[in-house]
């Protein structure tokens, strides 16, 4: 089927080239060929760029890591040559300005005029060139500064992310310790079923002692709720929490929630 279609298409193209294609075929086939070409080119062009785009929302330390995985991505490579180019224009700019003045000094009247005109013209040109050069320099400088600023931002973001990541790992670790403790002591009643869910708000001291447990939402099964409460009571005090930075304790553990949601039971 596919092959047949392909040959017919080819035939159609040939007919068009020979100028004898039926009117019904010419336009759709051409249209289709053009569309496909655009699509194929587009795909080649878009694909890498779309990958780069996925990098953007992620913090820079991740994208930096990605570069090593992906040799094609060039976000790092570009700024580097730009920085190297920057010092070069300075000596170039100084040289022509110093060399120009000695020439106009040696002159006669008629020639002098011509020469003056000539000089003026040259000077104007030079001026133009200089201005162009300055403009370019300015642009270069601006770009450079932007680059540096971006680098600084990136650096800061990276540090922040590292900090954030460190915090999160610490919080997740202690949350995991508490989770395991409670799970190891939770004896579910015979009536417990998957889908039952009870939520509690806990107030805890930095010693790991739980000072209040309040039920935010019940599972609808008194025995289930009681078993969850008992599991918390049996597991506390969570003394391990004493090793957590107090900044993080205050932020996340002074008050937190337990959701009892058994996933290993039958419905």
């Amino acid at each position: 089927m596919k092959e047949k279609f392909f040959w017919r298409m080819l035939g159609g193209v040939r007919k068009i080239l020979r100028g004898q294609g039926s009117n019904a075929w010419t336009i759709p086939v051409l249209f289709s060929v053009v569309l496909h070409t655009i699509l194929v080119i587009g795909l080649f062009m878009i694909m890498p760029s779309s990958e780069e785009r996925t990098i953007n929302p992620t913090p820079s330390f991740v994208s930096a890591r990605m570069v090593t995985l992906e040799p094609e991505a060039k976000p790092k490579a570009k700024p580097k040559p730009a920085r190297k180019v920057a010092p070069k224009p300075k000596p170039v700019k100084a040289a022509p300005v110093k060399k120009a003045p000695p020439k106009p000094k040696v002159d006669k009247k008629s020639i002098a005029l011509k020469r003056r005109q000539e000089t003026e013209r040259k000077q104007q040109e030079r001026e133009k060139l200089r201005k162009e050069q300055e403009r370019l320099d300015e642009l270069q400088k601006q770009r450079e500064q932007e680059m540096l600023a971006a680098l600084a931002r990136e650096q800061q973001a990276r540090m922040q992310a590292e900090q954030l990541k460190g915090d999160q790992v610490a919080v997740a670790t202690y949350a995991g310790v508490i989770k395991n403790l409670v799970e190891s002591l939770w004896s579910r009643p015979a009536s417990a079923k998957r889908g039952m869910k009870a939520t509690f708000r806990i107030k805890m001291l930095p010693t790991g002692e739980v000072i209040s447990i309040s039920m935010i939402s019940s599972s609808g099964n008194g025995a289930f709720d009681r078993s969850a409460l008992q599991a918390i009571e049996k597991a506390q005090p969570f003394r391990e929490i004493q090793h957590l930075e107090s900044r993080l304790f205050d932020r996340d553990f002074r008050e937190f929630r337990f959701v009892f949601d058994p996933r290993d039971l039958l419905k």
Binding site: E183, L185, R188, A231, R257, V259
Partner: peptide, 28 residues
């Protein structure tokens, strides 16, 4: 890249909301 991104999102979401510890199994 996708997995790392997901991991970060998870951590960030943990940071924003009130910490919730899910108890998904028991010892019985």
């Amino acid at each position: 890249r996708f997995a790392l991104f997901g991991y970060l999102l998870l951590l960030v979401s943990l940071a924003r909301a009130e910490l919730t510890i899910e108890i998904t199994q028991g010892n019985d």
